[in-house]
Every structure is written in structure tokens, then in C-alpha cells.
Design a protein around this nucleic acid. Sequence first.
DNA 1: GACCTAAACGATAGTGATTATCATTACCGA
DNA 2: TCGGTAATGATAATCACTATCGTTTAGGTC
Lengths: 137, 137
Amino acid sequence: MKEKRNTVQKELVRKLVLSSKAHPTAESIYASARSELPSISLGTVYRILHALAEAGEIVEVPVSGAPSRFDSTNCSHAHMVCEKCGGVFDVPLDVDAVLKAAGSDCAYRLDSAHITFGGVCDKCAESEICGSESAVN
Amino acid sequence: MKEKRNTVQKELVRKLVLSSKAHPTAESIYASARSELPSISLGTVYRILHALAEAGEIVEVPVSGAPSRFDSTNCSHAHMVCEKCGGVFDVPLDVDAVLKAAGSDCAYRLDSAHITFGGVCDKCAESEICGSESAVN
DNA sequence: GACCTAAACGATAGTGATTATCATTACCGA
DNA sequence: TCGGTAATGATAATCACTATCGTTTAGGTC
């Protein structure tokens, strides 16, 4: 049995990710972690994040051309990346249903699904009304 | 109207991506492009790939912790990343249906969907039968 | 066909996120 | 309390990708 030690760093990072609603990046977790534990290093944050992801406690949300976000796995949902502000938001969706539907149609064994939408968040959509978005090109 | 010039580089990269069935990376497209046009540079390949993606002729498939793959957009489908070999495979799926379903349930405007499954490809699944995968850990 | 202009290119340096390395620290079972 | 070792902190390295910039060349005009 592989030994797993509990450390203050691990507890802190876990707490920060699970309590955050903002889909933090490794860097922003590092920043908030440092305010509680100034000696923590960025490498440790990455190491712990990956360990937690591997253990299934959190998910990594890779964003094309931007640093990955991390999120708790408390309920099945997808993500939306705002094309204007780059923010990441939760989208209610039965991901497992999609996984099952695709898996039954498919020659391969599918274990997990990562669903990310591109879109525009409500804040950006609001400011878009005034702007001349549709006039471009 | 923005001027768009046709160049041999652009034609070559387009041809390579659209004719490939292997979801090539930018690097592997660069490699095959060089065999036809040795002077082409990696930066140019990236530039053209992004232009084609922006034009909707191809899609970029970002893979967590690995270089992006590129694929033609001829029909709606998702992708599966094999957890053993890292290969990328097509998965038949009505992505637009998922997009619509999620969009109707959602406070945001969703424009596009990127669906990637984690799984095991047929080749790796075969070799797994003989191996002692479940004994690990 | 020669000329012109700017889009596109090639070469290469730079960037930013993430990972590897390694000496040091500190869990935790004995 | 002690010892083995997992985990950490500091930092160097990597890797995919992007920016820069001088040069080339597509493609319209004369």
C-alpha cells in the first residue's frame, strides 16, 4: 500500500480548491495559499493539485491557450469559457448521460468525459448590446 | 475586406490536415510539410493552423498535458484520448445536440462545444487483457 | 512583363505554464 | 524519541507556442 502523508500544504490546497467557486488557476491557488502559508512553493501546489485530480477529489479543466482551472467534483456539470473575458463558468449538464450515450455508440471504452463550451457570459453579453460586435468584419 | 493571399505553405498545410486521419499535432504537420517544402518554418505552420481554425476549416483539439491536435470539421463528432497510448480517436456523437440541450438549460449563450472523452483505444484494450493492469496499486 | 505594396514567410528569440531535480524537512509508525 | 522516507522548497529545465523583424512574394496596377 502506497503511503500517503497528510501535510498542512495538502490540506490547505484542498480546502482552497473545494471552497472556491471561481475555478481558480494553479497560480491563483498559489497566491491565496501563500497568504496563509508564505513558505509554500508553486511546484508543491502543482504537485498537490495533480494528486487531488488523480484521486478524483477535483477536476482539471484545461483551457485552450490559457492556464488550466481546477474545480471540485461534487456534482456532474460542464464548463463554459467566455470568449470575451476568458472566465470559466459552470453549466448544468448530465455529463454521465452524454458519456453513456457516446459509449454505447462507440468502438472504444470511454471512461470519462470533458465537456467545455465556448460562449459569452452574462456580464459580457450585457456590454455587447451597447457595443458594435456584429458590425465587425 | 481583409486581403487573404494564397500561398503554397497555406495550401500544403490545409491539404495535410484535411487528408490526415491521425489527428496530427502542429509538430507532426511541420514534419510532413518539410518533406514537401523543406524551407517551411514551424511558426508558419502554427500561423496557418490558427488561421484555418479561425476560418472554421479545421478544429483544434486541445489535449490536457499534451500538444493540441488538429482535425477537419467535415462532420460533427467528439474525440477520445487514449489514457494508455495518448492517441486521439474520433467518437461519433451529435455534438450540436449536446450544445443545444445544454444551451436551453443555461443562463449563458453557448456558441460551441468541445467534447473529449478519456478512455482506452482498441489496441491498448487488447494488450491490457494479458497485462496485470488491475493488480497495480 | 516590370513595379509596387503589404501580406505572408523564415529564422530565431522570448514567453508562460508546467515539470524535473535535488538537497532539506517533517510525517508518522516503531 | 528516532529513523526511514514521502513530501517540500527552491530553482533549473522543458515544452508548446508566440512575438519579432528583416526578407520574400502574391497579386493588383500600369
